[in-house]
Design a protein around this nucleic acid. Structure first.
Lengths: 192, 192
DNA sequence: AGGCAACCGGAATCCAAGATTCCACTTATC
DNA sequence: GATAAGTGGAATCTTGGATTCCGGTTGCCT
């Protein structure tokens, strides 16, 4: 592969990551191309189609994400604050969509990407474990689960263009509100 | 207007309300037509375009909504439970999208619909008042506002097709989680 | 019953937004 | 300098609706 080509490949994946993070998983190819300072044609010479490109972004990102979760769970005093820190990290500007899109959405795209699926599953399992611990510690209410966490992460980050502007601008704020609602002490007894 | 035509008009608005409630504000005309047991052409004979139809649904619904808020605030012991009841009502299956779409989204469609705008504004003001009271009572945290409430209502009900299935199936559950997070007692101090 | 304007259904048409393809033109590399 | 790898981006193809049109029906009045 020619040197300039390799360079472009890098710019493309990086640009795709950025654009996906801010415009959601359905960001148009052209937006990515423009961000990378490259023609659409160039994207297609390297990736057979849109899905392949997104998947590549995933491969590139899933590691970072797994690592962030790991860090959060290692540097936090308890499971609850690990979750809190991680969610804050995941919703930070500049990475929003990625974090979660990859964790919940693309079941079709994933087939045949054993490596990606493996890390993703490990990651989810680790988060689940944190939830379990937080509940055992009595800091998280027992009537919610990892799935809720993932769904919400998904809701607030996957389709920024469908969200009210203020929400899209700071999904973290709303996610933290959700987390506050997930604290054991916040639970409103059923039928209230 | 011929009798059968009037009958159809009714079926159309009712069908539109249902479909919008379950598929979001962007439900396709054809879906509405089918639900009403009528051809698309018929929709267009009565309404110049899509927006007009949606607006009609709004007129038909905003009253119900205003009334629900009124009831909630009159039958509840305190401002907080009024809010709680109203949100639960608004997110109930079968009315989801309507409730909120009309409260936040369509600023362009509303021009020239003085009556609709008036009721809508009154309605929002009333909800705002409840929020103020709840905060004064010390039951709702002071760092959130009506806007947050409206945005979230919006997020969880306007585009059901973009939400993870479990969330779309029961937006109320997640909204109540949010409300729990909005309780004064749930607030996590900034910088935690 | 007869006539006709008001109505209908829904296929045909129009559009917008993106994905994907293609190829004449550049540029690393040897 | 030759040439295969690489490039930009206009042209083309798809998709998902909105909107238009018109031959065929019906209510309703006399």
């Amino acid at each position: 592969m020619r040197a300039d080509a390799r360079r472009n490949l890098g710019k493309i994946v990086a640009a795709a990551a950025e654009v996906v993070a801010e415009r959601g998983v359905n960001a148009p190819m052209e937006a990515i191309a423009k961000r990378a300072g490259v023609g659409v044609g160039t994207l297609y010479r390297r990736f057979p189609d849109r899905d392949a490109l997104i998947a590549a972004v995933g491969d590139h990102y899933i590691h970072t994400m797994a690592q962030a979760l790991d860090t959060a769970s290692r540097t936090s005093a308890d499971a609850w604050s690990a979750i809190w820190d991680f969610v804050s990290w995941a919703a930070a500007p500049g990475r929003a969509a990625l974090s979660t899109a990859l964790a919940v959405l693309p079941e079709e795209v994933i087939v045949e990407r054993a490596e990606f699926a493996r890390i993703r599953d490990e990651w989810v399992a680790q988060l689940a474990e944190l939830v379990r611990r937080a509940q055992a510690e009595g800091s998280m209410r027992p009537d919610v689960g990892v799935d809720d966490l993932l769904h919400l992460l998904n809701v607030f980050t996957c389709h920024p263009d469908k969200l009210p502007a203020p929400v899209a601008a700071d999904p973290g704020r709303y996610l933290r509100l959700m987390l506050d609602g997930m604290k054991a002490s916040a639970a409103t007894p059923a039928g209230a």
